[in-house]
């Protein structure tokens, strides 16, 4: 069991090392990698739910909740600190996740997905329409926060937020791995393979899914807070359904069989967007579409499965 996941874990370590060192060599990578890590944290939450066979098409609501928590603090309280923003963003999203979760965990599959979508569109509409509080579609600027009381120049700040994102990503990655290997994580997978049996073992499948859902919302909130700090703005787009779709897209791209799929997918997605947008302007979506088609046809279990397939071919010789 542990032998099977080792190769991917090695690649994960290499990836985190590159995220730490690469931007020191190429400064434009600082923001790129910070975004990859922040989105990877959100997608970890999507991958958690995929273990139970459930796809949330509304997870951008937690992403937006995290982002707006930081934005509202900046607008109504003023100032702010990265640690405070992240803690508040995570907690607010987890509480929101608990409330939404109590409804959605009663449903499965398409109904689960659509109910999530519905909740997220309610939040999006509120953010868009309550202009007086949210500035509507213009969004709210998130001023550059301090870190534990220290202020930074924009040049230094991009590295500060990169390393904060990296630290959180590593902790979240480790935590999710542990979770997936724990009894609760295995029960989450058991919902996908045989929910009836799980109930007949005396366990409430809804409760297991709710715990997973709240963790997933928490991760979504933290990722959203980070992105709002990186991009210095929170807009209703953060909670729009296309954003939810993007997270599911990244999860499929990376592969949901392993927590690292979140970061593999996010890296691929953001790199294609970063470079294709620079060179091919408006066609980056087209390129991503082609990438996804290739993935679905040739590596239906995502990028991380390519490594596993390669490993097997080497061992088994087929």
């Amino acid at each position: 069991m542990s032998g099977r996941i080792k190769p991917v874990t090695t690649i994960a370590l290499i990836f985190f090392l590159v995220s730490a060192v690469g931007p020191l060599l190429v400064s434009s990578w600082a923001t790129l990698f910070a975004l990859i890590l922040a989105k990877g944290i959100v997608v970890l939450g999507i991958i958690l739910l995929l273990q139970a066979g459930q796809v949330s098409f509304g997870h951008a609501m937690f992403f937006a909740t995290g982002a707006y928590t930081a934005a509202f603090w900046g607008k109504y309280v003023g100032g702010g600190d990265i640690v405070l923003f992240i803690a508040l963003g995570g907690i607010t999203s987890a509480v929101f996740g608990l409330i939404v979760g109590l409804f959605v965990v009663r449903y499965r599959e398409i109904f689960f997905g659509m109910l999530n979508l519905a909740f997220s569109m309610v939040l999006w509409s509120l953010l868009e329409k309550m202009f007086h509080y949210t500035n509507g579609a213009d969004g709210i600027r998130v001023p550059r926060p301090a870190l534990l009381g220290l202020s930074f120049t924009p040049e230094t700040f991009q590295y500060v937020i990169l390393y904060v994102s990296l630290l959180i990503a590593v902790v979240a990655f480790y935590g999710v791995q542990r979770y997936l290997d724990s009894p609760l994580g295995h029960m989450l997978r058991a919902i996908k393979s045989n929910e009836t049996r799980l109930e007949y073992l005396g366990t409430s499948a809804r409760r297991v899914l709710l715990i997973g859902y709240v963790i997933s919302a928490f991760l979504g909130g933290i990722g959203g807070t980070l992105v709002a700090i990186i991009q210095q703005i929170a807009t209703p787009e953060f909670g729009f359904w296309t954003k939810s779709g993007e997270f599911v897209f990244i999860a499929i791209l990376g592969g949901s069989a392993h927590a690292f799929g979140a970061f593999a997918g996010a890296a691929m997605f953001e790199c294609v967007r970063f470079y294709a947008a620079a060179h091919l302007a408006d066609t980056w979506q087209l390129i991503l579409g082609v990438v996804l088609i290739v993935i679905i046809l040739y590596a239906p279990n995502g990028l991380i499965a390519l490594r596993q397939r390669y490993g097997q071919a080497k061992q088994g010789g087929h």
């Binding site: 724990s182 009894p183 609760l184 799980l198 005396g202 366990t203």
Partner: peptide, 12 residues
């Protein structure tokens, strides 16, 4: 399941 309150951290 029988023991109840399953852990989310210690390995199964």
């Amino acid at each position: 399941s029988r023991l109840g309150s399953p852990s989310g951290y210690t390995a199964l």
